[in-house]
Write a protein that binds this DNA or RNA. Structure first.
Lengths: 343, 343
DNA sequence: ATGGGGTTTGACAACGTTGTCGATCTGCAG
DNA sequence: CTGCAGATCGACAACGTTGTCAAACCCCAT
């Protein structure tokens, strides 16, 4: 319990002050703080006492600045929405990987806003992050070419780069939709609807395309009226499906193209069931699996993406780039699984 | 040592280089970059061209270091688990508030590990964050006294500080449990079980205490055998409830003390129902509401916390401290609501 | 041409730290 | 005691930027 010197104002102590109190040069303080050799035990002790008494804490920014080629030990992670189950699971998995590399996370949500993506990338670059993991919101990322050339380690996740050559870890969305459609077709469904997010979103387009081609492959007609896109939130999907179900030739099953749309679809089904207990209810398959999917009613069969694998691969790629790997961009495509859940 | 040398030409351009290219002093470049007045239009244009050609990007670390006042424009957010629905909702809400103050988030998960909390607080301090939002993992945070005295803006969320006087925004957990128990008692339940997290966790203890006192207030006996704590994950709760339900005097209802425990409880109920369709199923009420709670089967009545309000209040408090407010710590306690969901 | 005001511009120091390198000290062999 | 190697320590510069302040410039009135 060493006495603590009460310091006026709220400035934190600097090495200079520690040095003065310990009666040594700041370089010696630096050596002690960084646990470098070449300091006699007595001196080291004096410095450590001074550090303690002044509650000195190293200023990482200054340290990073001086150390040549030093890394900041921080990476940026830009996802669509931290609160979304997919994004937050990915964020968490990336955190676990980053922790092993002693990296801190700068995280932010893009909300499908290209301008916000640009602004946040700028911000990350200004902060000199050691690397950037990006789930892009913009249709093209040509602007990132300069950053890449400047040596910014960059990995795309969930959505591939456009207009720039960067590493990526994505999921085979076409295959995911195919699994879903094949499953439904095998159950005898012939009218399978698709609920999709904004057409601008690459994964959304791919999932719709997967739905379309899988229908054709199964010898089923593709009814454009059964595909509704541009849906952003659960409520949108609920309204859209409710409308589809009350149309002349309603679908008997539906593929929801994103987790929040699955929620909306399930709500629509619940509503229909509540209004007419004997109504025929459509089967729902969702893209993006849920932690709680096994507890939902009606049950939700879902296309499952291995978020942990995405994070591991992305981090490995990033780490390679961080140590100077300049080889051509690699693109990993993971295969999704279908988690079938029946009533 | 050759390893350091084989990465030529990766350095980003500095103001010095921009200045050289534009034929001005670095101070003039600084003025242009920071959009300061007092630069002739022609000169400004030359500098902007040079910035463009060299793809110069300001180094925030260096800028922060030099600038008086020294804000880094970053705040730390330490929650239990970024992937947990409660934590990620809070994180997202905090992000939205922080964005309005032009603050970037350094986020990390503590996983109920006190050592990790200390390490991450150290890290945040070393990075000179402008403020820290902490959902503590440790039983006491005496160590933070020094940081507070050094002027670190600090706000506790979800769990109050112990051993240190800092602002906090929490929820009345006792009241939350009371709402749950009253609801169940009103439905005629007399044997209401409690599933709780680690006893070391403040909120877990409060919720158990709320369960206990509400039972007494309702004139119901408190059977210690009906309270199982130390449960960390859904699986733990599932096992615990399954065991309780197969005991001699099983509960007819259960209060799950945290979102993941609710999931486990629901799974136990589902399992029981699957094994014996005519078994009497317990009512489940959970602490922490779910986005998808209305879609669960069996339905989940849940204690709802206003995460948005928590974030707004926490950010406001933090912002006040950031501008130098030194008034005594404020402690806000929000009242939870019960979202009743019936079959 | 001269002076006076304002505007532009740059030299320099400083932020807090670490790399470099030389100065000083220590221990010990001769 | 001297000499010398190795250990210890500090002065100084530098990282990339901005605050300070004085110098240089401009325009125009005298």
């Amino acid at each position: 319990m060493s006495a603590e010197l009460d310091r006026p104002g709220q400035r934190r102590a600097t090495m200079r002050e520690v040095a003065a109190l310990a009666g040594v040069s700041i370089k010696t303080v630096s050596r002690v703080v960084n646990d470098e050799p070449g300091v006699r035990e007595g001196v080291r002790q004096r410095v450590e006492d001074a550090v303690e008494r002044l509650h000195y804490r190293q200023h990482r920014g200054a340290s990073d600045l001086r150390r040549t080629g030093r890394r900041t030990g921080a990476i940026g992670i830009l996802v669509q929405d931290i609160a979304n189950e997919f994004s937050s699971a990915l964020l968490r998995a990336l955190e676990d990987e980053a922790r092993q590399l002693d990296l801190t996370l700068l995280a932010a949500s893009l909300d499908e806003d290209p301008a916000r993506e640009r602004a946040l990338v700028e911000e990350m670059v200004a902060r000199r992050v050691d690397g950037l993991v990006l789930m892009p919101a913009s249709p093209r990322q040509d602007y990132l070419g300069q950053e890449l050339r400047a040596g910014l380690p960059l990995v795309f996740v969930d959505r591939p780069p456009r207009g720039v050559e960067a590493d990526s870890v994505c999921v085979d969305n076409v295959a995911g939709s195919r699994l879903a459609v094949e499953h439904l077709a095998a159950k005898g469904h012939r009218r399978i609807a698709f609920l999709g997010d904004l057409d601008e979103i690459h994964t959304a387009r791919e999932r719709q395309e997967g739905w379309r081609t899988a229908l054709l492959a199964a010898g089923l007609p593709v009814d454009p009226a059964l595909s509704v896109t541009g849906l952003r939130e659960a409520r949108d999907a609920e309204v859209a499906l409710t409308r589809l179900l009350s149309a002349d030739a309603p679908p008997t099953a539906v593929l929801a193209g994103r987790n929040v749309l699955s929620v909306g679809a399930l709500r629509a089904v619940r509503r229909l069931r509540a209004e007419d207990p004997r109504a025929a209810l459509p089967d729902v398959v969702g893209f993006d699996d849920f932690e709680l999917a096994d507890l939902l009613d009606p049950p939700l069969t879902a296309v499952h993406q291995d978020v942990g694998a995405m994070a591991r691969l992305a981090t490995r790629m990033l780490a390679d780039r961080m140590v100077g790997d300049r080889s051509p961009a690699r693109h990993v495509v993971l295969q999704p699984l279908l988690h079938v859940r029946e009533r």
